[in-house]
């Protein structure tokens, strides 16, 4: 565990060290934190980029597969010249070049039943940015079991959603989606700027949770319509019969419905 910032780090993070209530104690919390980012595509790539910029000490990137040309309207950590090459290795290379103080751990796997407990165990916070509900719901379950916060980012066309699950405080993703929505498809219409917007907002949520700043979106969903540039927060209800969070070790809060 680091107890100090180097002179180089003080200079690198100077603008955010000026943020009221953050300072060196906040920066050290980020430096000592480890975040799992589930997929580093349009959303997770932007989120990871911002967490690297902010100085989160360790980023675990989980993403299988190789870059396709049609990923490049939104996956900012990738390179046009590297179509066909590993996404996660490109992301790791870019993040290391951007901030060599950050330890980047690339894992060329998507979250699955087989690896989710191990991946979450190595992190202090989980960023859920995958296009498949199966992966998001697995992360939700493992994060609850291991008492770790989860930031969930989602998008479609010109809309986006963001919410945070903190064990024992409010609903989890399984309260909202008890089963995988049957009609959801892995590929869908979206602009890269929508992915980047919700990725950056998710990064801010992670920075807040790790450093203790602000109020996270616990029990609340931020709903963004970028067509009209309207942003609103809606209140979410925990389900009494939720098979995931009602049996988690932190299920102490009285559910609302």
């Amino acid at each position: 565990m680091s107890r100090d910032l180097s002179d180089d780090e003080r200079s690198l993070y100077e603008w955010q060290l000026w943020v009221d209530g953050f300072g060196e104690p906040g920066q050290l919390r980020l430096k000592n934190a480890s975040v799992l980012v589930s997929r580093v595509g349009g959303v997770g790539g932007a989120l990871a980029y911002q967490l690297a910029a902010a100085g989160v000490g360790r980023l675990i990137l989980a993403h299988a597969g190789s870059l396709r040309l049609n990923d490049l309207n939104r996956q900012l950590l990738m390179s046009h010249a590297k179509v066909g090459e590993s996404r996660v290795l490109q992301a790791a290379e870019r993040l290391r070049a951007f901030n060599p103080h950050v330890e980047v751990v690339p894992i060329a796997e998507n979250v699955s039943e087989a690896n989710v407990e191990r991946l979450v165990r190595d992190a202090d916070l989980v960023a859920s940015c995958a296009p498949l509900f199966q992966e998001r719901l697995l992360l939700n379950r493992a994060a609850l079991q291991q008492n770790k916060p989860l930031v969930d980012c989602a998008m479609y066309e010109m809309e986006a959603q963001l919410t945070t699950v903190v064990p024992g405080r409010g609903p989890c993703l399984a309260c909202l989606y008890p089963t995988e929505p049957a009609a959801w498809k892995r590929q869908f219409p979206v602009f890269g700027a929508v992915a980047g917007t919700i990725g950056c907002l998710g990064a801010m949520e992670a920075i807040k949770l790790l450093s203790g700043l602000g109020e996270p979106l616990v029990g609340t969903m931020l709903v963004c319509d970028l067509a009209s540039m309207s942003f609103r927060k809606v209140q979410l209800q925990r389900k009494a019969a939720c098979p995931v969070c009602s049996s988690s070790p932190q299920a102490t809060q009285e559910p609302a419905g």
Binding site: G41, G42, V43, C129, A130, L132, C153, E159, W184
Partner: peptide, 10 residues
């Protein structure tokens, strides 16, 4: 009334 259809990352 607002109806939110599911969406995800990507």
């Amino acid at each position: 009334i607002t109806i939110l259809a599911p969406m995800a990352g990507g």
